[in-house]
Amino acid sequence: MYALKDKEMIFVFTGPHGAGRKTVAEMSGSTLGMKQVISYTTRPPRATEEDGQDYQFISPAQFVQAQANDEFIEVTTVNDHLYGIKSADIEQMFELSGSIYLILNRFGAETLKKLYGDQVVLIFIYADREKLEQRMKDSGDTEDIIAKYLSYYEEELDFRDQCDHVFENVDLAHTVFDLTKTLDLYLNRNLVDLD
């Protein structure tokens, strides 16, 4: 497992599926010059997803082989698909940037917090159930998939109490602005508010 150096920080974006955590994370990461560590998964890509950008999509056999080689620091199963983060990817991204971020479900977020303690900042992004359902419909998810994700909604929401920061993503620009200011306190980039 990669050992974090003193000033290295990992920001983990978590929250219910459809809350916009990926969009919020990418916009905040871009503004602050942070690099994303991409998770691996055995599930097939959705129509809007790209390999290497949203996830590293690999076969179950490849995943099991990497797991046998002890390449993952965290592995979870969601809806019968495996997800994992490779230690080597974390190390590589830290070579490019002093701070990195990941987009994980609550199980992955908990695991990273246990592994790295205070050097992991958990950021919970959420929206109300109706908004999530609409966003999932808009992104082309099937009724079955939507029902499955919404069945976890209350459990996901309960996890926010364990997170360092909580943002309701009603207005994307507002959420990103507030979040970027919050993360800047950790990074000491001294962003200037021009409003």
Rank of each mutant, 00 (worst) to 15 (best):
D195K: 13
Q53C: 02
L32P: 14
D138K: 11
G20V: 01
A88R: 15
T41V: 05
I123A: 06
S39K: 15
G15C: 06
D128W: 12
A66M: 14
I38G: 01
L104I: 03
A173K: 15
T48S: 12
Q134R: 10
L183K: 06
L157P: 04
N79R: 11
E74R: 03
F13K: 08
S139M: 07
R189S: 06
Q65H: 12
T14V: 07
Q67E: 15
L4T: 03
S97T: 08
S28I: 09
Y186S: 05
Q162R: 14
E8S: 06
G15A: 06
G117V: 00
T111H: 07
Q119A: 07
D6M: 09
P60D: 08
K114F: 03
I146N: 09
V37R: 12
L172P: 01
E26R: 14
G18M: 09
L132R: 12
N105P: 01
Y126E: 06
Y101N: 06
V64M: 10
S39V: 04
I100D: 07
D54K: 12
E71N: 09
N79Y: 13
Q92V: 00
Y55W: 15
F159R: 03
G140K: 07
E130Y: 10
E91C: 07
K181F: 01
I100H: 11
Y152M: 08
K148S: 14
D141M: 10
H174V: 03
Q62C: 05
D144A: 13
V120Y: 07
I123Y: 08
